[in-house]
Design a binder for these strands. Structure first.
Lengths: 202, 202
DNA sequence: CTCTGGATAGAGCGATCGTTCTAATGCAGG
DNA sequence: CCTGCATTAGAACGATCGCTCTATCCAGAG
């Protein structure tokens, strides 16, 4: 049985890796730094992750993917209308980003970009992350009465614009790009209501 | 006067750095690799760029910014209507990305993300890159009769969605995200025509 | 107690990093 | 020819990289 009064060593390593790679990227994050900040030793790191840094990065991406998926779930629960949900979503995203000192952007993107064409396992983990987020948007739209193909395409653009706007907000240290993105996503969603069954008044 | 029959050493170094950082990112690109592929020596690199890797990255980002700006200019020239231009733009972007073996994504983003909060000079160069691209979109929209504030906001979303869709296309090795982005940008732009002077038939 | 195996601990490996340094080279102006 | 300067050349530095290795610790089974 694992110790329960505090996080297990393995979980501590994954969380630390995820946070460090979110802020610094894959290449700039060293195993020494990870083991130190996770209060573990290099021996423990290689015990739990024999695949080394690559395997660690895959786990970190999956952790970040689950984290952001939970964020989307919560945001989508609080607003019934998808368009309104987008605005709320970008607002919270902007607030969290600002409160982190503009350091915590997308937990996946930096590592993903550094890995394209060079570390297929990490790239695939990132792909699965994006797809899981798109699935959540798709379901949200489907529940609001959007046709399946319309929802699928909108889900792509919702996630992609969230990505781009968060990146832009982080680089410019401004909430503006996310705020604009929220409103434009609402407009885009509303302009596709035509082919869908009309949602109820809520 | 510089030698003209072939590129000068400085220019060769900048172009090589830009290409390598576009594909591998900032941290994974070593000065040894740069000097080798640019057919220069370490001495030359530090002669032209006393600031070392940081200064080199700033120049590389500026080079990439100018490159993509030129791409946008050409794309916008070929289509009079902004909405149609977006579709043409994403199509060409997708083709180029695919033909590079999904290796050449945005020439700025990877380096920018690796630098946030740790290398302000690079981050600022990236900011200026994005702003210059937004300016081109803004002008394109203004020329089509869009109001200034509407054009400014649309420019944000156009660039941000292009960024996000290109990232997504690269990670998933598929042209689909860009193709969808083009159509959705066209819809978004058209849905904002209301407050603008009606463009001519072309 | 002994035995066992997961977990921890950290010294140390070769390689590579960004950077600095000195010396040589090419070439224009006198 | 010589001088002067921009450029080229690459050896070498200390630091850090990912990773391997051996030794130790410790809880539970017998």
């Amino acid at each position: 049985m694992k110790t329960q009064h505090e996080l297990g060593t393995r979980e501590r390593i994954v969380r630390t890796t995820a946070q460090l790679m979110q802020r610094q990227g894959y290449e700039a994050t060293g195993l020494k730094q990870i083991s130190q900040e996770a209060r573990a030793t290099l021996g423990s790191v290689y015990h739990f992750f024999p695949g080394g840094k690559r395997e660690l990065a895959v786990e970190a991406v999956r952790h970040g993917a689950a984290e952001f998926a939970e964020f989307l779930r919560v945001a989508f629960e609080q607003e019934d209308d998808p368009a309104a949900a987008m605005i709320a979503c970008t607002r919270t995203l902007a607030k969290d980003l600002r409160e982190s000192g503009w350091l915590d952007g997308c937990p996946v993107t930096t590592t993903a970009l550094e890995s394209t064409g060079r570390a297929p396992e990490i790239q695939q983990a990132a792909e699965e992350a994006y797809e899981s987020w798109r699935a959540l948007v798709r379901e949200k739209l489907a529940r609001a009465g959007f046709a399946e193909d319309v929802a699928r395409e909108l889900a792509h653009t919702v996630i992609n614009l969230l990505e781009g706007a968060e990146l832009s907000a982080q680089v410019s240290q401004s909430e503006t790009p996310l705020e604009i993105a929220g409103r434009h996503l609402a407009v885009l969603i509303d302009s596709h209501r035509g082919g869908a069954t009309r949602p109820a008044s809520g």
